[in-house]
Nucleic acid binder design. Structure first.
Length: 444
RNA sequence: GCGGGGAUGGCCCAGCGGUACGGCGGCAGCCUGCUAAGCUGUUUCUCUAUGAGAGCGAGGGUUCGAAUCCCUCUCCCCGCGCCA
């Protein structure tokens, strides 16, 4: 949620940010109308309550001295009736006002490119050594900013869709039978590699000051609503029937909500948390996209970086999270680019977001594997997470970013490190201590 | 699932129909020739704010007045049962 006080004091900066995000600013107009009406009611109610409190004090005194209080009792009853109906009216107004408030997105960082469409995201940098099929060369050069290190291939690398079948690493058909599309059984060495990725990423983050946790995989509506903009997000979540519980779509939401309604000591910040969990997504709006293989599935493992910090430090930690993710992909040897996500594609919560996109040689494209956001105080305000300073309590800033989302990285590994015409692939060196093997082949 | 006990300000804890006690910690100041001790004030949220209102797990009810009594719910602790 945005800062209501700031909205009242400086409405123009919110009008400006909404326009840049291509949001309808009428929600702001509506807010101000309702807020004024609410304030008027509040003043009225406050005065009546003051009157009532004075009267009950008189009653208390008179009861002790034994004098008659029937007249005063009647007056308080009459006041209660008026207060009751005013409060009802006020609640209606404030509910509606708060509804508009939740529709207002975070402010925008100056760096964010103002435009719509993922194709207009701004390239920050490309790193790595990509294997590029000659027909994809132009796409690769354009999307990597013409500066990319790469080698040209005469044949298109084999898709992971075929490799998982040939190498007996995933059973999609039987998963389809028992659960439906976008479910899978992960098998054999691919299972080991997935576990290795999780262990590698959590070890990596633990060494850098992160507390590693496995969160609850289901959280209630209130926590979900605090951690996300739930109205636009609802359709991508699984709901547990008959319970006030949703399956998490990322551990970010559980970690953010973990400190809900808490006030921390200044010395407890920054709090770095690495969450490792299964993530569940309905992918409701994705019919027809990535229907084969395990690129886009209903459940995957993810290791997430999350930081609660003081407002003045949050851009430093944004850089830290970006650097962590980059080091992980560099060490795995996966070529990637970073883009600065443009204003029209940013979520409500983020003031700025970097996406990392890995190069997928068989698709001939960069595809999203990591998303890193600074939500500033937006998420913390919705969740009531503060810290104590000598000048009073302030909201913390929250940041989140992917370390590893396993299914997509498995695809990236298969497609980037295949050899022998896709009948084998190499396991990244940094994972070998965790897997105990360094290649996967059909013969295995 | 059954029975019992709980939830009070950042933390601990008292109050059990008359408007939240005390301690700890934090902050500010005073005192003091020691990195000690002591003293005073302060500590949440909201409102066009030298004032007022709200707040005792959540929501409802009774009452002139509810932390306190009644109802519903949530979570925690202790037993019993069931269980990977």
């Amino acid at each position: 949620m945005i800062d209501v006080k700031l909205l009242r004091e400086k409405p123009e900066i919110f009008y400006d940010s909404c326009k840049k995000r291509f949001f309808d600013t009428s929600v702001l107009d509506r807010f101000f109308t309702l807020d004024e009406a609410w304030r008027e009611k509040l003043r009225e109610i406050n005065d009546l309550k003051h009157e009532k409190n004075s009267l009950t004090e008189v009653i208390a005194r008179n009861v002790k001295s034994g004098s008659d209080v029937e007249k005063e009792k009647g007056m308080v009853k009459a006041l209660n009736d008026r207060i009751g109906s005013l409060e009802e009216a006020q609640k209606k107004i404030s509910d509606e006002r708060d509804g508009t408030l939740r529709l207002i997105p975070n402010l925008l960082h100056d760096d964010v490119p103002v435009c719509r469409g993922d194709e207009n995201n701004q390239l920050v940098r490309y790193t790595g050594h990509a294997r590029v099929f000659r027909d994809d060369r132009d796409t690769f050069l354009r999307d990597s900013g013409n500066s990319g290190d790469y080698e040209l291939l005469d044949e298109r690398p084999v898709s992971h869709v075929d490799m998982i079948k040939d190498l007996d690493l995933v059973d999609l058909d039987r998963a389809g039978k028992i659960s439906g599309a976008r479910f899978f059984f992960i098998k054999n060495r691919l299972f080991k590699i997935e576990q290795a990725l999780i262990n590698y990423a959590t070890d990596f983050l633990a060494e850098r000051g992160f507390t590693v946790i496995e969160p609850p995989l289901m959280i209630n509506y209130e926590s979900m609503a605090g951690a996300t903009d739930i109205e636009t997000f609802k359709d991508s979540l699984y709901k547990i029937e008959g319970e006030d519980l949703y399956l998490i779509s990322t551990s970010e939401h559980a970690i953010a909500a973990m400190l809900k309604d808490e006030t921390l000591e200044e010395g407890e910040l920054p709090e770095r948390v690495a969450g490792a969990s299964q993530c569940f997504r309905r992918e409701a709006g994705a019919h027809g996209k990535d229907t084969k293989g395990i690129f886009r599935v209903h459940q995957f493992n993810k290791v997430e970086q999350f930081i609660f910090c003081k407002p003045e430090d949050s851009w430093d930690y944004f850089a830290e999270i970006v650097a962590n993710s980059e080091k992980i992909y560099q060490s795995l040897g996966i070529p990637y680019r970073i883009v600065n996500v443009c204003s029209g594609e940013l979520g409500y919560l983020a003031e700025k977001k970097y996406d990392m996109e890995a190069w997928f040689p068989s698709q001939g494209k960069f595809r999203e594997i990591v998303s890193i956001s600074n939500d500033t105080d937006y998420q913390a305000r919705s969740l009531g997470i503060k810290y104590r300073t000598k000048d009073g309590n302030r909201y913390v800033h929250t940041l989140n970013g992917t370390a590893i989302a396993t299914k997509r990285i498995l695809v990236a590994i298969m497609e980037n490190f295949q050899y022998d015409g896709g009948r084998s692939f190499k396991v990244p060196d940094v994972l070998v201590p965790y897997t105990g093997f360094d290649t996967v082949s059909r013969e295995e």
